[in-house]
Amino acid sequence: MARIRTIKPEAFVSESLAAVTLTAERTFVGLLTQADDQGRHRDHAAIITGQLWVLRPEHGPSDVETDLAQLADAGLICRYKGPDDKRYLHIVTWHQHQKINRPSMSRLPDCPVHGTGTGIGQSPRGAASPRPWHRQRTERSGRGHGALTEDALSTRGKCASLQRIRVPTENPQVNAGSWSRPGRLTEVCVSLQ
């Protein structure tokens, strides 16, 4: 699925991008829009041709394979084989240039050379691990509906269970200033007394 990505002005004076042909540069920019939130994509020239060059039939899969080889030689992408023996690529400087607001986990295997540890079930590099809701709430301002008291803070780590509830949407007074969005599943700690 294509995504909106950022191109920095420095890209036009990049020596590594200047080392490749214009078609390879266009393939690189196109890969930015097609890569997942960790900068990974299938290394399959026919698939990339269909995504980026569909309206340019004169630039076929063999030309895209040449583009990918140039990008790899310039150090812009890294090509690798996954545990399933399929070929993958990732954009080497992805995490330096792309700031994803809510990055999703990659469904593609991590690069064995530049591994970031952001495969399925792993947090993106630099992202904080998920914290219990009561700790997140107390680290904010502590004001508004749902603010926790000192008694509630003393139960930290003593949750008997986490239960999921749905915050009602039909009563606006319940949701006013709430730390949870209406109609969304929310975890609530049932503490031991």
Rank of each mutant, 00 (worst) to 15 (best):
K99E: 10
Q163Y: 05
E65G: 09
W53I: 12
H134E: 14
G115L: 05
Q38R: 12
P182T: 01
V188C: 05
Q98M: 07
L162P: 00
H59P: 05
I91D: 10
I100K: 01
P83T: 11
K81E: 07
T118G: 13
V64P: 09
S106G: 02
S106P: 02
T155A: 14
G82C: 04
H97V: 12
R26Y: 06
Q173P: 00
L76E: 07
H44K: 07
D36E: 04
Q96S: 12
L68N: 03
V64Y: 08
T138H: 11
A35K: 00
G142L: 11
A46I: 02
P112G: 11
R181M: 04
K81S: 10
I7F: 13
I48P: 04
G115T: 06
E25C: 08
P9H: 00
R143Y: 09
P109L: 08
V29R: 07
A11D: 03
E15S: 09
M105F: 08
K158H: 08
R140A: 13
R184G: 02
M1V: 08
G121A: 07
R87A: 14
C189V: 05
K81Y: 00
G60N: 09
T186N: 02
T186L: 04
R87Y: 09
D37Y: 01
G142E: 06
G30T: 06
I7L: 15
Q38I: 08
M1H: 06
L192N: 04
P132I: 14
R107I: 11
D151Q: 14
G142Q: 00
E187V: 00
A45Q: 07
R40M: 10
A128Q: 15
L76K: 03
L52A: 13
R79C: 04
R164L: 14
I77Q: 00
D36Y: 00
Q98F: 03
T66P: 02
A24M: 08
A18R: 07
K99I: 15
V190D: 03
D84R: 03
L71W: 02
R137A: 15
R164P: 02
V92M: 01
D151V: 05
P124H: 12
A160K: 05
V13L: 06
D63H: 13
H41W: 03
A128F: 11
P103G: 07
D36K: 02
L22V: 11
P57W: 10
E150A: 15
T149A: 07
Q173L: 13
V20A: 09
E15N: 08
S14T: 04
